[in-house]
Nucleic acid binder design. Sequence first.
DNA 1: TTGTAGGCGTTATCAT
DNA 2: ATGATAACGCCTACAA
Lengths: 338, 338
Amino acid sequence: MANEKTTLNDVARKMGISKMTVSRAINHPEKVNHKTLDRILKTMKELDYKPKFVARVLAGRDSKTIGFFIKPNRDFVIPPFYGECVKGATDWLKILDYKTLLFNASEKNSKLLFLDYMNSGLIDGAVVFEGSYDEELLATFKNNNIPAVLVGEKISGPFKIPTISTDNYSGSRKAVTHLIESGARQIVHLTGKGTKPSYRERIKGYTDVLEENGLSPRIIKTENTIEGGMRGMEILQESAGDFDALFCFSDLVAWGALKKCYDLSISVPGEIKIIGFDNISISQYMSPSLSTISQNMKEMARHAAGMLIQIISGKRPERNEITLDPELIIRESTQYPL
Amino acid sequence: MANEKTTLNDVARKMGISKMTVSRAINHPEKVNHKTLDRILKTMKELDYKPKFVARVLAGRDSKTIGFFIKPNRDFVIPPFYGECVKGATDWLKILDYKTLLFNASEKNSKLLFLDYMNSGLIDGAVVFEGSYDEELLATFKNNNIPAVLVGEKISGPFKIPTISTDNYSGSRKAVTHLIESGARQIVHLTGKGTKPSYRERIKGYTDVLEENGLSPRIIKTENTIEGGMRGMEILQESAGDFDALFCFSDLVAWGALKKCYDLSISVPGEIKIIGFDNISISQYMSPSLSTISQNMKEMARHAAGMLIQIISGKRPERNEITLDPELIIRESTQYPL
DNA sequence: TTGTAGGCGTTATCAT
DNA sequence: ATGATAACGCCTACAA
C-alpha cells in the first residue's frame, strides 16, 4: 500500500492543475482559492501524499531541526543529570515548531553524521549538553559558523559559544553549609579529575565556607562515576584522618560512596553524612535517599532553546553566559540520626 | 571560513572539467584517470568540498542510515536494559557502513520525524527496542513496507515484524530455581501490568518451577518501575502471608523492593532474598548488589543488525524469531546470610 | 488566483 | 576516460 511514493506532481496531474498550486496549498494556503484548496487537500489525502523532506531542504527551506549532543555513558544511558533538561529543551523547541535529533558525542561517526546533516541543511543548530563537548567540536562549530549553545558547563578553552549553566559556587556553598548545620565538622570533598570550570567553582565554594567556619578542607580527586565514588571512600579508609561528612561532586559519586559505606557497614547518616550534586532522578531511591543540590533543569532548558533560536535567526543573543542558582534538597543522607 | 558551501560544480569549474567527472571521482574512482583523480581530490580539499547528503539522497542514493526507536523514561534516561544492546547494534551497523539515528518512541513528534525521514529516503530501516513499540507503530511499518526488526520482546498483536528476544521462560526458571536452591520456600513474583508476552512467559516459568517443587505461587502485579517495586513491597506488607523471597520482573522493580526493605529495616538477603531480571548496569552497585538474569545483549545486537540489513537488501530473513538463552548472575541479594 | 521557468546539488544514462 | 542531459521533488520569482 502506497509504496511508490506520491509526489507533488502526481497530485497536480490528477487534478489537472499545476504543481505550483499544490505546493502553494501547502506553504501559503491563504494564496489559494478556497475551493481549489479544499480539493487539493482532499486529493492529497486520497493519494496519501507526503512532502519529501530532502527535496524541500534542497530547495532551500529551513529544516527546523535541532541536533542535541549527548554523551551516553558506557551503557548508553544518558547521564541522568541532564535528562530532564534534554526533555525540557525538546518541549520548548517543539513549541517553536522545531524538531529534535539526538547525536552521540562519544561516537566519531555520530559527530560526522551531524556535520553531514548540518552541511546539507538538514539541521539548523546544536545544543551541546555538559560532558559531551570537546575543543574539537567547539572549533568545528566556530569554523563553520554553526549555531550552538552549551548547557550545564562553562567553557574554559578558546572556542566560546553561549552557555547556560548552574552557579556552582553558590550550590557548593549551600551543600557545605548544610553539612555544617547538620553537625558535621570534618568535611571531605570528592571532586573530579580534570579541569572543568565546574570542578574549580565547587572547590572554591567548599573551601570558602570551611574557612569561614574555621574548618580545614580535604579534597580527594576521583573519577566522576559510581566507581569513582567507591574508590574515593577506599582512599579515605586507607589514609589517616577522621571525617564525618562527604560533599561529592555528583550524585553518581555520592552513590558510589554510599555503596562503599554499605559494604563497610558504615552507617549513613549515623557515622558520616553524604551530600551529592545534580539531583538525578534516582537519588531519591538510594538507600538512604540522597541529599543533593538541584540544578534548575527546566529553566536551563528554556534558556537554551531560546538562545539557540535567537542565534539561528541571526540575532546576537543578549547574554553570552547565563547562570542559574541551584537549590538544596534535603533527604535522609544528611539528617540527624534518629 | 567556508561559509558559502562548495558544490560539485565549484570544484569542476575551478578545474575546467565537468562536474560528472568530479562526481565519479567520489563514487567510482576506478573509472577516473589516475592523474585527474589526484588533482580532483586535491581541489576538493582546497575548496573544503563536502557532498550534500540531501542532494545525493534526492538523486536516488541509499542513505545507509538506520533509525533506532528507544523509549526513554520520564527523565530521558534510556532504560538501562538495552543500552548495551543499542551500542552493540550501532557498532555492528558501523561495520556494515551504516549510520545510526536515535528516535524517541514516546514523542509523537519524533515518530513523525522518523516517518518524514523514511519517506524522504533519509533512513533505510528501523530497529525498535523493547518497550518502545505499539500497534500503531508496527502498523505503520507494515503499511509502508518499512524494513524493521524488534529487539527484546515478542509481538502479540497482528502486525508482526522479525523479533530478537530472550528466552523468558528459561530465564525465569533459572531465577526461581536459584531462589529455591538458596533456601527460599515462599517465593513471590512481582510482575508487570499489561499483556506483554514476556510477562506471561516469565510467569509460566515461575509457576512451573514452583509446581515441580511442590510450592505454591503468589503473583503481584505492579508497575514496571522503581516506584512499582516499592508499591509491590507495600502491598505484600499490608496483606497476610509470609514470604522469604521475591522474583521481580525487572531490576528496576527489584530496586524498588530493595529500597522499601531498607526503609522498613528488612534485611536482604537475611530475611528475604531478591532477584531481578535484565542485569542493568547499576544492579551491581545496589545495596546489596542484585542477583539477576542477564540477557545476552551483544548477541541480540548482532542478530538485530544482521537481520535488518538482510531485509533492507530485499532478502527475507531465514528466521522470523530469534530467541537467546539468558544467564543467571548471582550477587549478594540472594546469598545465604553470613 | 494560477502557471511557467529555473534552480537547489547530486547521480544515472547514454554519448563521445 | 570524460562530458552532456535529464531527473530526483520541491520552492522562489516572475509572468499571465
